[in-house]
């Protein structure tokens, strides 16, 4: 009989990063992959199983009962301030709690959680190199970050509670590519808003580099929290220059109040607190990932920006209407 193939469970498989990860695990490594995502999976390889259910549902546990899972990649976190906060909160916190609980109960040896580098939060008095043990301050000015911080902390306590499981928490900087996240969406705007008098240092990461970090985190022996940083930080306005787009200079004095009201009534696309990300820096120290994970970014800033501006952005995943969300 052939050796059992490594079995990976990937939550959020229909997202861009999920699909890129599956392509690598399945096609290149020959792993068996089962995905969990309530969204449809566009170009699904024939032998990749897809459980199209909500991760909060108990039915997910069946998957762990009937299979011997080797790795869980938890990529299915939600960060969309436009969604209903209650829905957002239970999705992230209950979803994570549930997945980790199943992994523990059914003896999964490895769990990789994709958190975000945004948990530290932009502030004028941030150090230039934020290390993994820095406090997670993002919710101080941006309450919608609360549940992502809670998830990250929950994953850390899981790491300490169950030493027999290799838990890895990844905190990547702004991922650029065919993903739908704030940073990539920002670069896709026809004119890029910048704040008058501010030009923070920013860090970006090519989606392929992000996925290779996720993949390398699954190697046996790797555990702990890792900041994942790409090429060296650069000023925001240089990034905009690379994107080759015109800017709009916005005055910061009146803007937050105005934008806050507009967002409340859905006239604005993003909440005022997100302005802090183009105002102050939150640059991470990625040396731990490079020393311990032995991961190195392969793509430069220009490649990452090009990837975000490419046409095949909304590859695969079909956005879902959920009862709680207002669109």
């Amino acid at each position: 009989m052939a050796k059992k193939r490594t079995l990976a469970v990937v939550t959020g498989i229909s997202g861009r990063l999920g699909q890129l990860l599956v392509r690598r695990l399945h096609r290149l490594e020959g792993w068996q992959v089962i995905g969990i995502d309530r969204r449809a999976f566009g170009r699904r390889p024939a032998d990749v199983e897809h459980l199209r259910i909500d991760i909060r549902r108990k039915a997910c546990e069946d998957l762990f009962r009937t299979h011997r899972v080797d790795v869980v990649f938890h990529l299915g976190l939600m960060h969309d301030p436009r969604k209903d906060t209650g829905e957002h909160h239970t999705w992230n916190i209950l979803g994570t709690q549930q997945i980790l609980e199943f992994a523990q109960r059914h003896g999964v040896p490895k769990v990789v959680i994709l958190s975000t580098g945004d948990v530290y939060g932009p502030q004028s008095d941030n150090p230039a190199f934020i290390s993994e043990d820095a406090p997670l301050m993002a919710a101080q000015r941006f309450p919608a970050m609360r549940d992502l911080i809670a998830v990250d902390m929950y994953a850390q306590s899981f790491f300490w509670k169950f030493p027999e499981i290799e838990t890895v928490v990844l905190r990547p900087v702004h991922i650029l590519g065919g993903v739908r996240n704030a940073a990539s969406n920002y670069l896709r705007l026809p004119r890029l808003p910048v704040l008058f008098g501010f030009d923070p240092m920013v860090q970006v990461l090519h989606e392929e580099d992000a996925v290779s970090a996720i993949q390398m985190a699954a190697r046996p022996g790797v555990r702990g929290v890792f900041n994942v940083t790409g090429p060296q930080a650069l000023p925001l306005r240089k990034l905009v220059e690379v994107a080759g787009k015109p800017t709009i200079e916005l005055p910061h004095v009146v803007l937050p109040g105005l934008l806050h009201r507009m967002f409340q009534f859905r006239f604005a696309e993003f909440p005022a607190a997100e302005l802090d990300y183009i105002r102050y820096a939150a640059t991470l120290d990625g040396s731990r990932a490079q020393d311990v994970l032995r991961w190195q970014p392969r793509y430069g800033v220009r490649d990452a920006v090009r990837a975000a501006l490419r046409a095949d952005v909304f590859d695969g995943a079909v956005p879902e209407r959920t009862p709680g969300s207002i669109r």
Binding site: S124, D125, A128, F129, G197, F198, D199, M201, Y280
Partner: peptide, 26 residues
């Protein structure tokens, strides 16, 4: 001083001219 690096214009200029937020880690 942390206060100065957070200001518009001057804060950004200071950083470009090699000045650094006063933190032990930096």
């Amino acid at each position: 001083e942390k206060f100065a690096t957070g200001l518009p214009l001057t804060g950004t200029w200071f950083l470009r001219w090699g000045q650094v937020t006063g933190l032990p880690d930096n």
